[in-house]
């Protein structure tokens, strides 16, 4: 690089600027953010309609329903994670930029979580209340969804990077990500239903937190490798 050129921005600056950019882009098109939320609420409504309105049944199936709906809503929004960047060529710029690509991939995943995961976590108590959950159960559900949706954003970013630019990417993305996401679903839903039965929940929450940390450290590298391959 030419010495007279200005220094490239620092790592944290690079990270924060890509997060800010993606949030701004989402702000310009609120439909993309709201659709997964509506989807989440609607799937959660479908289950009581399908299984019947008895309170005992709702309390029993609530944790599973909320978690499956959250997982599907996250999947729905993941497809477009790299799509617009791929189509307008900004993905090339990201790959060529002086910032390390894993860092930028992490930024994309963080932005995805802030735009799609966080609203979902915030809306979930409403659904929890409608499923007759107690206050303590809802707290546990918020915690599991918090760690779980971060993990899903990171895990999903690998799948989105692998399938970007492919035809019928959405179905393929679900096929790739769903089996990998099963531990998150198992621990998330089981921990909430344990909380509903007043049993110890710390093991599940610790696991989800540990999985989240593992995903935070490893997934960006896999996503970066996948982006380089997909954009060749």
């Amino acid at each position: 690089m030419n010495e007279r050129e200005s220094e490239p921005p620092g790592l944290s600056q690079g990270l924060s600027s890509i997060v800010r950019r993606d949030i701004l882009l989402a702000w310009k098109r609120p439909g993309d953010v709201l659709n997964p939320l509506f989807f989440f609420a609607m799937v959660s409504t479908l289950f009581p309609l399908a299984t019947g309105p008895s309170a005992a049944q709702l309390a029993f199936s609530g944790p599973g329903v909320v978690w499956v709906a959250a997982l599907l809503a996250m999947l729905l929004s993941l497809n477009s994670l790299f799509l617009s960047d791929f189509e307008d060529g900004s993905l090339d710029q990201l790959i060529l930029s002086p910032q390390p690509l894993p860092l930028l991939s992490l930024g994309k995943a963080i932005a995805h979580w802030l735009v799609n995961g966080l609203p979902l976590v915030l809306v979930s108590p409403l659904i929890g209340v409608s499923f007759q959950m107690s206050g303590q159960t809802i707290t546990v559900m918020l915690l599991t969804l918090f760690f779980g949706t971060i993990s899903l954003s990171l895990l999903g970013s690998i799948g989105a990077a692998l399938t970007v630019g492919l035809h019928r990417g959405t179905a393929l993305l679900s096929l790739l990500i769903l089996p990998l996401a099963m531990p998150v679903l198992i621990f998330g839903a089981r921990t909430v239903s344990l909380a509903a039965n007043d049993t110890a929940v710390s093991a599940g929450i610790y696991f989800l937190a540990a999985y989240c940390m593992l995903a935070l450290t490893l997934a960006p590298f896999a996503t970066a490798a996948a982006l380089r391959i997909s954009n060749e």
């Binding site: 089996p179 990998l180 099963m182 531990p183 198992i186 621990f187 089981r190 093991a203 696991f207 999985y211």
Partner: peptide
Amino acid sequence: NIPIIHFSVEW
């Protein structure tokens, strides 16, 4: 992921 999947299913 396979060891994690196996562990979670056992739990």
